[in-house]
């Protein structure tokens, strides 16, 4: 089985988020980048397939050379090869198109993407990618088994789970559940040493039209201090809600 795992290079969850250039660009100064958590669950599941059922795992990312440490970490964890599509990831559609080119060329059986990346949280790339390469698609995937060309996938739905059977080639939008947090792998020292020796191919991007452009970003207003009102002081509560918070 040939597996392609799509890896987003995203700010660590504890990063301070700021914008520059009049709130049009994310300020990456001093920010630590990591493998997008949803993608990491997928990568770990891919490693499971590799070890238990035999598979060749390639990781792919759309980004500039700054994202290479993230790809190399995926190699250190155990992926066999990496591809970087050399263009900044600006919007979901162009990213999906770039990934589709690589996916078609490599004739992958299974493409694992994260349900969404934790930076812009668009959640659109996996679905678009599936459509572009005309593959089956399961989103919000929390369990995946593959036997021959048949796949059984469980996805999260409102208030429960749904298990579907489908066939390869398949794209999934994966998340926690594919594996658990305790299954996530820490690259071992030998893996880190080997990562340098594995192929990291850089391919140039095909030109795609830009369907959307971000005009500006803003941060949510910071949460104010909490005022505690004694449980028997209803008058004060009404007064605060009416005159201060102006919600009633």
């Amino acid at each position: 089985m040939k597996i392609l795992v799509c890896i987003s290079h995203v700010p660590d969850t504890t990063s301070k988020i700021n914008f520059t250039e009049e709130n049009t660009k994310f300020d990456s100064n001093g920010v630590q980048f990591v493998i997008n958590p949803n993608d990491e669950f997928g990568l770990t599941r891919a490693m499971w397939f590799k070890e238990k059922q035999g598979a060749e795992v390639t990781v792919v990312n759309v980004g500039t050379s700054e994202t290479e440490p993230t790809l190399r970490k995926a190699l250190a964890i155990g992926a066999d090869g990496a591809i970087r599509i050399n263009t900044p990831a600006t919007n979901s559609f162009s990213v999906a198109k770039q990934l589709a080119n690589v996916a078609k060329d490599g004739a992958y059986d299974l493409i694992i993407a994260g349900r969404e990346s934790i930076d812009y949280n668009g959640g659109m790339v996996p679905g678009m990618l599936a459509a572009l390469i005309d593959a089956n698609f399961v989103n919000n995937c929390i369990n995946l088994d593959v036997e021959g060309s048949d796949a059984k996938a469980t996805r999260e739905i409102d208030g429960g789970k749904e298990t579907v059977s489908t066939t390869l080639p398949l794209v999934i939008g994966g998340q926690k559940g594919l594996v658990e947090e305790s299954d996530l792998r820490i690259p071992n020292m030998r893996g880190i040493m080997m990562a340098r020796k594995k192929p990291l191919t850089v391919v140039e991007a095909n030109e795609t039209s830009k369907e959307t452009t971000s005009i500006s970003f803003e941060k949510p207003t910071p949460k104010g201090a909490v005022k505690l009102v004694a449980s028997d002081n209803i008058d004060e509560l009404v007064n605060l809600l009416h005159n201060e918070a102006k919600v009633i």
Binding site: P69, R72, K73, A76, I186, M189, I192, M193, A195, R196
Partner: peptide, 10 residues
Amino acid sequence: NEDQLMMKEA
């Protein structure tokens, strides 16, 4: 270097 940063992270 990049390897050392990865080791530090691991």
